[in-house]
Design a protein around this nucleic acid. Structure first.
Lengths: 149, 149
DNA sequence: ACAATATATTACGTATCAGTATTATATGTA
DNA sequence: TACATATAATACTGATACGTAATATATTGT
């Protein structure tokens, strides 16, 4: 693969798309009045909405974040009153992450808002091309996880 | 679009792919001995290798970065001796960004290293699917830039 | 029971990028 | 020329996420 100038480079496109979509979500959530939910919170919230009371490390696995990244993220989410850490009686090494009432209620408004925003972000793109893109990105992630890279 | 759990969500895949590929590039460059070039530098370096002596704002446009993001980036690249700011005689508000000898020489090793790494990252993916993905991401970027989003 | 090992969490530093405000300089117009 | 507006660059702050290392607790093998 020859090394194309930025706008044709797949790495450039992936990084810019990530930043741009994040920016759209951040602004869109604020505009909808869901100002206490940042895009980075969504992975954790989605996991907790389907299953509460998980460990930080398990949440990190599901959201694709390193354990060391979880500390600050959970700090910010706890600061924003979306969840709280409670001691795990069975394993005193760690704690359990529980949604607060605010965190539970956040599901209603934010899912609709995020769905609407993602609809706009992926507007005028065929289902087939979106599926192809998802499969390519999954393969990229798998390639990046290979030992011999 | 219903809101899928992270591994099926296109936004999740885009953000994870961006972080993973960046990580592969960062580690790969260090492993190849190109330790003074960070992935974030590549957009600026690619522009300067094809045309030196640009303004910070013009470099930002070509690399897709906000002016405010350029300050810190150029600071780090100047600290790493890849470029230097020189006063613009025609416009004393700004400066011109010039590659140092080190920055010019960096082209040789790093382009080969990055090409090899991106080959691994996109291994076993058909040209056609990569083209589809690039077009989808271009459309996503265009959608994100719309006024009415 | 004790030592070795494994795991969970946190602390700290660094990199990256956006948003806002500020300052300095250019440029256009009355 | 004087003033208003536009532009370039930076400072500062905050958000996000990684890597390394330290610490605390569990688990396992002997």
């Amino acid at each position: 693969m020859n090394f194309p100038l930025p706008p044709d480079c797949p790495y450039y496109l992936i990084s810019r798309a990530s930043l741009s979509v994040t920016s759209v979500l951040r602004k869109g959530l604020v505009r909808t009045g869901v100002s206490n939910i940042k895009p980075a919170y969504l992975g954790v919230l989605l996991s907790l909405w389907s299953e509460d009371n998980l460990r930080a490390s398990e949440l990190g696995r599901r959201a694709g974040l390193e354990p060391s990244s979880m500390t600050g993220l959970l700090d910010r989410m706890e600061r924003d009153r979306l969840l709280k850490r409670t001691p795990d009686p069975n394993d005193r090494r760690g704690s359990r992450i529980c949604l607060t009432k605010l965190g539970i209620e956040a599901e209603k408004g934010s899912i609709k808002a995020v769905e609407a925003l993602l609809d706009k972000v992926f507007a005028d793109i065929s289902k087939k091309d979106i599926e192809t893109t998802k499969n390519v990105l999954r393969k990229v992630l798998a390639n990046c996880s290979r030992e011999d890279i």
